[in-house]
């Protein structure tokens, strides 16, 4: 979120951690690393954005956690989705998709052309090793 970058997390009573289902379950949450010098699971997040909703300081938690994600290894399944997108433009690959769609009375789909997808994904120097794949 493009927000007032002057806002600083003052580790208020850590309301974000209370709102986070991952943190509440005792697992390392990405928030733990943002609000204190604690171990972090940058990818341990369900994208529910409850943390953002409750933060009284309007901290740009989204950008902070995304930056963290670049520093830690992606979970295997995320890596798989990323790989699928870079190959086909869709994060899930289904063989015979259009035949199945036809059985449901749905129009066939065409996935984005290889060349176009390349252009959309290659247009920057990647900020971390993580992005080399795409």
């Amino acid at each position: 979120m493009v927000k007032n970058s002057k806002n600083e997390c003052d580790q208020c009573p850590q309301i974000c951690l209370e709102a986070c289902m991952v943190a509440r379950s005792g697992k390392p949450s990405v928030l733990a690393g943002l609000t204190a010098d604690a171990p972090t699971g940058a990818w341990h997040c369900v994208n529910c954005w409850k943390c953002i909703e409750v933060c009284p300081r309007d901290i740009d938690i989204y950008s902070l956690m995304m930056a963290r994600r670049r520093l830690e290894d992606m979970p295997e399944l995320v890596e798989k989705s990323v790989d699928n997108i870079s190959r086909t433009g869709c994060s899930i690959i289904v063989r015979g998709l259009n035949q199945i769609r036809e059985m449901y009375g749905l129009k066939p789909v065409r996935l984005i052309e290889e060349q176009k997808k390349k252009i959309l994904l290659e247009n920057e120097s990647p900020p971390s090793g993580k992005t080399e794949k795409v």
């Binding site: 995304m66 930056a67 670049r70 990323v82 997108i85 433009g89 994060s91 996935l111 984005i112 992005t131």
Partner: peptide, 13 residues
């Protein structure tokens, strides 16, 4: 033509 919305990537990737 269909292309992922980018949710599997997000700025984290």
């Amino acid at each position: 033509e269909f292309c992922c919305c980018g949710a599997s990537l997000m700025p984290g990737v």
